[in-house]
């Protein structure tokens, strides 16, 4: 592992230098501020840097897409955020966006076009899958995960919401690990409990928390690692690990982190 400083380019600095990045990395609020999600952001930035893609982030020009406000019923706040974001993105002449957050992904991809924001939007697991397919990321010659039992939790906004099921699985296959599906997966995947603005409130009264219900699926799979592709799922499932007996050895890792590890990044 080399130890030189990795400089993350911003759109503003690129524009000042008269450069245009190939792709904008939309980091998202969780990826920017949440300590755990920051590590995913860093892992993905390392991957982008490693393969030499010319990318940039918005940095302090980035703001919430408005997704949690919209799902909570505050359409005004959503559209305020959306229109400002679109103004920023169009100002930088952005055409292609990658993000590690399925909620940002869904909103920018599906809900911004109607408001004047048209971009090609991909989820980071789709980019990783492409890089693996192109041979730009190491596949099976690294044995970090050899023999490890890994399962994958489909984020609702990526899977059921946008029909992206195969790319994250393809990225995981590159790890040469022992992959196992959860009993509720793909279209039948069970939510982690954070969607629809639940992330920002206490759950209603019930018999159980949703993340516990989901981690019981993970426990049943006997996987030692559960791979995720969403910062909210990361929070919910990591909390679940703490609250279920005999599960403390289960690691919750983003596909970007797993990919970075297997590529010695």
């Amino acid at each position: 592992m080399s130890n030189f400083n990795l400089k993350v380019p911003t759109m503003a600095s690129m524009m000042a230098n008269g450069e245009t990045p190939e792709i904008l990395f939309w980091v998202g609020c969780a990826g920017s501020y949440d300590e755990r999600a920051q590590r995913v952001t860093q892992a993905f930035a390392k991957i982008l840097n490693h393969v030499g893609i010319k990318y940039a982030v918005l940095g302090t020009d980035e703001s919430c897409t408005g997704d949690p406000a919209k799902r909570a019923g505050n359409e005004f706040l959503f559209q305020m955020q959306a229109m400002q974001a679109i103004e920023t993105l169009n100002g930088y002449k952005v055409t292609k966006i990658v993000t590690a957050c399925p909620h940002c992904f869904n909103t920018i991809k599906n809900e911004y076009p109607q408001l004047g924001g048209n971009y090609q939007v991909i989820h980071h697991t789709q980019l990783i899958a492409d890089l693996v397919a192109d041979g730009k990321l190491k596949t099976k010659d690294n044995k970090v995960f050899k023999g490890k039992r890994i399962t994958y939790h489909d984020p609702c906004y990526l899977g059921r919401g946008n029909n992206v099921y195969e790319a994250p699985r393809f990225a995981l296959e590159a790890l040469d690990a022992d992959l196992v599906e959860l009993k509720r997966c793909k279209q039948n995947g069970l939510c982690c409990g954070a969607g629809g603005a639940q992330m920002f409130k206490e759950p209603e009264k019930g018999t159980k928390d949703i993340n516990i219900e989901r981690m019981e699926d993970v426990k049943e799979s006997n996987a030692s690692i559960v791979a995720v592709g969403c910062p909210f799922c990361m929070t919910m499932l990591s909390d679940g690990v703490k609250n279920i007996d005999n599960l403390s050895h289960t690691a919750v890792l983003d596909i970007a982190e797993l990919t970075a590890l297997s590529n010695n990044l």
């Binding site: 980091v27 609020c29 920017s32 940095g59 990044l265």
Partner: peptide, 24 residues
């Protein structure tokens, strides 16, 4: 979101802090 552009109470100026001391 209205005040600092994020669902949590963090300063907009700190958005890029994750990139500090990032080594490769």
């Amino acid at each position: 979101i209205e005040n600092n552009g994020a669902p949590w109470k963090y300063a907009a100026a700190d958005r890029l802090n994750w990139a500090n001391n990032l080594s490769n």
